[in-house]
Design a protein around this nucleic acid. Structure first.
Lengths: 206, 206
DNA sequence: CCTATAGGCTAGGTCCATTAGCTTGACCGA
DNA sequence: TCGGTCAAGCTAATGGACCTAGCCTATAGG
């Protein structure tokens, strides 16, 4: 009985690869075990349950997304930063559909580790929006709108919803341009009231 | 052995109710059978499979969504129509989360009945956008952007992603206002090229 | 070398979806 | 009314998935 040399991180990493290949919803322990050269029950020495594994996957997926977005934004501001972050977001979702789907899971309210990962993504978005001079409720509305647009677009695209003969990339760029215009105009509008940004707990992206 | 008096439509209707209550992804035959006062295998006299039932649910859910959107748009145009349709869309998704999730399933390419239901929703959106004077690629970009924004927003909201202390309805209104401004400006921009609207097959909303 | 621990294993339980095959209620024509 | 057909229910059994209990041994530390 040779040891396979598994660890918690190795199992989660393999689960991420499997999820990217066959889809988040079809993720199953049997396939993970097979690919690791181990029988299914052996996985339970490293994970708590399938649901626990999904949560762990959500955490590392969210961290990876934060890293990708952060790297895309360095040295940019306003329109440049918005387009760069949006492009990086879409690219991550298309290249790692399983990991991306994992990030859509909202953290449990008592899961500090997961919550911190989600907040790290939100901080990047806030930083981009700060470049537009947004404040108060505007920041929240802009964040929600941008999240909605990004998530909706990549979810529909990944699901095969864009079948018309029109370049998807061009449509995506115009969506982001629309947000760019909106955020620019909000900064000068009456909406920019200095309401407190009361952060109970911030969840991302779902 | 008293007969329960089931039919295909009754089973699908009960499935819709169950999906709205416990969620699209947790829909299962055991619970449907129990609620109908029948043993699980008896359902197979009326449905082909769980996946077939899901597809049937997608069709009726999509039709219901089309009816709701259509009713909301009558007698309105441009900004009024856009806000009315958006509000009806969000309301449907929040009141019938299971049915809404079902509508996100893209029709199989050879499923004419499902495809027709999906197209009936798209026609409503096209009609609203026609009021803005959009043409060519603009119509496609606007449709994709609007779908993305609507779907993303309600998906995130339903998933508990909007936890900050800011009224969700207000954020939604501002998102729609942003689309309204964008569509209005597109109609007068250089983008409005008369490219052909090549409709291979149109899928909605995923 | 001895021992404790941790990481594998087999066996078995539960819960679903699905299929096969049986039984019986309801309707229809003679 | 009688009998036949069909549809709608049922039980039983299969297979796949997650999960647990309990065993067995490779490895690390003394």
């Amino acid at each position: 009985m040779a040891r396979a040399g598994l660890s918690h991180d190795i199992v989660v990493a393999e689960a991420a690869a499997v999820a990217d290949e066959i889809g988040w919803e079809r993720l199953n322990l049997a396939l993970i075990a097979e690919r690791l050269g181990v029988k299914l029950p052996s996985l339970y020495k490293h994970i708590a349950s399938l649901d626990g594994l999904r949560r762990d996957l959500a955490v590392i997926g969210t961290r990876e997304l934060a890293d990708v977005l952060s790297a895309s934004a360095v040295g940019r501001a306003r329109t440049d930063a918005l387009h760069a972050v949006a492009k990086a977001y879409r690219r991550f979702a298309l290249e790692h559909p399983g990991r991306y789907a994992a990030t859509v899971r909202a953290p449990a309210s008592d899961d500090l580790e997961h919550g911190e990962a989600a907040d790290s993504v939100l901080r990047i978005v806030f930083a981009v929006l700060a470049g537009y001079g947004l404040a108060g409720d505007d920041v929240i509305d802009a964040t929600r709108s941008l999240r909605a647009g990004l998530h909706g677009f990549v979810a529909l695209e990944a699901g095969g919803g864009f079948a018309i003969a029109r370049d998807v990339e061009s449509s995506f760029n115009r969506l982001i341009e629309a947000f760019d215009s909106a955020f620019a105009s909000w900064a000068n509008s009456i909406y920019g009231s200095p309401a407190s940004v009361a952060r109970e707990h911030v969840e991302w992206p779902k």
